[in-house]
Design a protein around this nucleic acid. Structure first.
Lengths: 109, 109
DNA sequence: TCCATATATCATGAATAATTGATATATATA
DNA sequence: TATATATATCAATTATTCATGATATATGGA
């Protein structure tokens, strides 16, 4: 994850619909969610959602798979961890404890 | 960290200068960096930097302390971990392993 | 009080992004 | 091949964001 990818990722997540989509896909995990179902669940028009999904794709935050006429979207966790690593780079200089607090917060359950 | 705070945070980080500032402050940790030094090190004009620092402050990503005529800025790690927690909410449904990979990446050293 | 330094605010023009209606493309089925 | 469904693209309008010059505020020192 380099600088411009990071900017694209944060820019993608700085809009309500796209943040909602990404969080939905994070929750869905490996199951992913069909494009149409994303539009329906978030109550966003088809073409608006399509444009927003493209932004998330270009930012590398999600990927998709076509199955016949439908397209299933997934959060890209690999990209997400690259993003967080870039943001937290060298965060431990002089004080590892601070960094650890951030890590603890996102630990599962 | 709620929805609108999260949007404000990602929006703040989606601009080059502000991303640079935040990463600089993450590296600086508890020492923080003086406002003027931030402008100098990133080669950004004073009023532009002031506006960008205000955006980061409003997003809750940084805090500051005035010492005489100078103002020292710090990354707000508490806010950062709230942001990540919001983004990763329920990420473990059905597959804790995926979440763990993300956590491992940002572990110190 | 007067001046210098450090930082913030304001107004504006330029660039970017968001939503929408209309339309196009891709796939499945009859 | 004709039709329906699922999704993407295009063009245009509106809205948002950015950097800047000018100016204001806050603090310290003479």
């Amino acid at each position: 994850m380099d600088n411009s990818e990071t900017l694209a990722a944060f820019s993608a997540l700085s809009q309500q619909t796209r943040l909602d989509v990404f969080r939905l896909l994070v929750k869905a995990g490996a199951d992913g969610v069909l494009s149409g179902e994303i539009s329906d669940r978030l109550d966003v028009r088809q073409n608006t959602m399509s444009a927003n999904l493209t932004v998330l794709l270009n930012a590398g935050l999600v990927r998709n798979e076509r199955h016949g006429r439908t397209i299933r979207y997934f959060a890209d966790f690999e990209s997400l961890r690259g993003l967080l690593a870039f943001l937290m780079e060298d965060c431990c200089n002089g004080n590892p404890d601070i960094c650890q607090l951030v890590i603890d917060e996102i630990a599962c359950g």
